[in-house]
Design a protein around this nucleic acid. Structure first.
Lengths: 213, 213
DNA sequence: TAAAAAATGTTAAAAATTTAACGTTAATAT
DNA sequence: ATATTAACGTTAAATTTTTAACATTTTTTA
């Protein structure tokens, strides 16, 4: 289905979704001082088969060694390079409700290179208020921010019905990636990427799975 | 691969993941007073093909009508029944960091039937503190809560390295569904369902997609 | 009343994803 | 030095998911 081009190779979506997980695990292994890891161990840790692991890693520019496995450091480096972890990702956050506030105050994201540079909301009662180190700005302030050209991603944590409007606004301003935290499906042009994180829908799915046993 | 049994029919995972989305849309349509909706319109709204929509809906106990489409109310009712939306889902939340706090204070979940009945953390500095209408409890208080037998789901919003221990604790106490908000992969017995909501990994994926254009 | 049209349910094909199988390579041991 | 073994990379098969095609049904219209 959807594919993404890197240099000359095309990495399937299913693989791209897993790459960040390999990176997290590689980082953890490095921190623990582990030098080598096999596809079988990686598979066990991440809930995959060793076959899937080997196939996935064949897409990144990095080779394992027979009888040893993958060098943890090498793996981390290669994945970080592929995923572009070296440079910071600049984010705008729209929607300063509970969830938005939590995301803006979450130091973990910043530590991992995701820098939120502005928090926005359309509620006049909230605009101007402080949230952590941010002062909430009005929606009109989004466009100028993006226009500066440094913004990579817009995080949308507004109510369902406002989601598409916010997406349109961000896209018009020039943002090319959206993290959609709402239950809405966002209509976007082909040039814009959307990744959905829909907690409520996940809860629904989980509730169904638990009940149907 | 993994399947889930309902009465005699087996609904594929891919379909189960979409059912909550159809429900949300059906609810919205009902609220707007729309009476009928076609698979083509549903597809457009949700970013699918009409073929997928028809196939998906063939798994729930509900039929559309030729030339008209699907009755919005009928669809909502059938999906609500299939997904078990009628009865409340009782949740425990473990991890009272920024994200945990946000989730516990989010009225949207409660409104949709997900009742959080307890918030837990292992940090003594937080235990006893108030978060919204909750008083944060220590980890030792989890087991008694679950033992009562009413708890459906555990929501895990702790740091990566604590995730598996918390999962083990919840499972031992008897919880059979976990919403995993951490980057960790949880090892669980077959009787337990896990749905992952990994914001950081989604951000990583998105950053990659935006950069590789 | 019969034909046309619009939308469904279903069958089958296509595409994508996952898994298994196996030849190859590098380390270890005899 | 050679055999053995463990793990990789890769090819091919199996499975799952998605999409297309079409026969069927219901409504509308001539």
């Amino acid at each position: 289905m959807e594919k993404i081009e890197l240099e000359t190779v095309c990495i399937p979506v299913s693989v791209i979704r897993r790459l960040p997980r390999y990176l997290t695990e590689a980082q953890r292994l490095c921190q623990e001082g582990v030098e080598w890891v096999s596809s079988a161990i990686l598979a066990k840790t991440l809930g995959l088969t060793s076959s899937t692991v080997r196939q996935d890693l064949s897409y990144i520019d990095f080779k394992g060694i027979s009888k040893r496995g993958y060098s943890a450091i090498g793996l981390e480096t290669a994945l970080a390079r592929t995923l572009g972890v070296d440079r910071d990702v600049v984010c705008l956050l729209v929607g300063a409700g509970n969830l938005g506030r939590a995301l803006s105050m979450h130091e973990g994201f910043a530590r991992q290179g995701f820098k939120i540079v502005g928090v926005f909301d359309n509620n006049p009662a909230i605009v101007g208020k402080k949230i952590g180190r941010f002062t909430v700005q009005g929606m009109d302030d989004i466009a100028p921010h993006v226009a500066a050209g440094t913004v990579d991603i817009g995080i949308i944590s507004v109510p369902h019905d406002a989601a598409q409007d916010v997406a349109d606004l961000l896209i018009k301003a020039g943002v090319r990636g959206l993290l959609n935290m709402t239950t809405a499906h966002l209509q976007v042009p082909e040039t814009v990427s959307v990744v959905d994180v829909r907690i409520l829908l996940s809860l629904r799915e989980l509730a169904y799975r638990v009940r149907s046993r």
